[in-house]
Design a protein around this nucleic acid. Structure first.
Lengths: 206, 206
DNA sequence: TAGATTGTTAATCGATTAACAATC
DNA sequence: TAGATTGTTAATCGATTAACAATC
């Protein structure tokens, strides 16, 4: 009865596809059309969606507005999510300046760092807090999601503290496999690993 | 005979694990130790490695220096890779400033943008080139890897041009599913999709 | 040697696909 | 109605795991 993780991971892609088709002015779509757009099979899309209900009509396809709404409901994206950011380096700065997360309903509400030179300094609309105050701040803010943007050497320690403080999902930018209780979700942003696996397929000669 | 993609994608994690154990001063390891480190099963690690040869010794485990060397060889990481970057926005700046890629043998050798205000301006040690010169520059430089850091709306068009120009692997930071010939590898850096699938598991209340 | 751990086989498990009855 | 496309079943495919002989 519980839906495979691999299906859940595809739902945001379906949502993105639905939005793109809507922006083209379309009102309905088919599993076939989405499949071409995403490079998947139409059977897979129908099967994935069938885990959550019946969203289409035989012979007609899917109403885009309805599917959009349902996917957001399933993924709990019909609300705003507050996140804390740990690590006020270059990456942290870029994440705060970029509007990408906010546009999609993910808002960074606090930034932490361990460097005394950074603590107390403004960062965008926020002020960098001392990482020593992590636990109490997280409980105060009620955040459930954290972005981990600290050096590799500090990542596991900070991640454990985040888990202890009640954080339930971590977006990990550190190049480290985190060891955490299974109830804490981890999404790993790991461009180097992607590069290092793509080179397998490239001829080593120029 | 050809190795499943999912196995290839784990090799860089094995390599990272090997390096971490070496930094701890260890000289040998076991599939069991690596499994704990990475949160996988020891059988999976042994099976994955067995696709490429016999790297261990029964009763003894794996010599870390040897395994390190072999993994780098298999992944073609025993050389330097030159990459071109398309998109000189905040993200592009952060990628150039960060030493992460260079440390691992991936060097950005050219930056392109479409904005006339950016073209000709310095960006770190490079000068931003006109994206109109993409094809000729890529052929000249002989780059096989590109980083795509342009807005969503431009991503597909630029990606197609990269493929035409002979690029064989794209690290895609744009929130778009790229449609490309199957011989072009794509690695998708997609933090929003990770966030949007993690929220499925979070209670929508508080 | 005795103990340990690999490499590999066979069994299990899970995900994808093909096909089609249901039905809009 | 006729044509199209869903939702679902059963078959296929592939990946993971358990177990163990080989052997260091």
């Amino acid at each position: 009865m519980d839906t495979p993780g691999v299906v859940i991971q595809r739902l945001p892609l379906y949502l993105r596809c639905v939005k793109a088709l809507q922006e083209q002015g379309k009102r309905i779509t088919s599993s076939q059309e989405m499949a071409e757009h995403l490079g998947l099979s139409s059977a897979q899309i129908r099967k994935d969606l069938s885990h959550f209900g019946e969203f289409g009509k035989q012979g007609m396809g899917y109403d885009l507005a309805y599917l959009h709404e349902q996917l957001e409901r399933i993924l709990h994206l019909d609300r705003r999510w507050d996140m804390v950011l740990v690590g006020a380096g270059d990456l942290g700065h870029a994440l705060i300046r970029s509007g990408d997360f906010v546009q999609r309903g993910f808002r960074i509400v606090a930034v932490f760092d361990a460097d005394p030179h950074k603590i107390g300094q403004p960062l965008g609309p926020l002020v960098v807090r001392d990482v020593a105050t992590l636990s109490s701040s997280i409980r105060e803010l009620g955040a459930q999601i954290a972005i981990l943007a600290v050096p590799a050497g500090a990542a596991q320690e900070v991640a454990s503290k985040l888990a202890e403080a009640g954080i339930r999902a971590i977006l990990n930018y550190a190049p480290v496999s985190l060891n955490l209780p299974p109830e804490v979700r981890v999404g790993h942003v790991d461009p180097l690993v992607l590069l290092q696996s793509m080179t397998y397929y490239l001829c080593p000669e120029g």
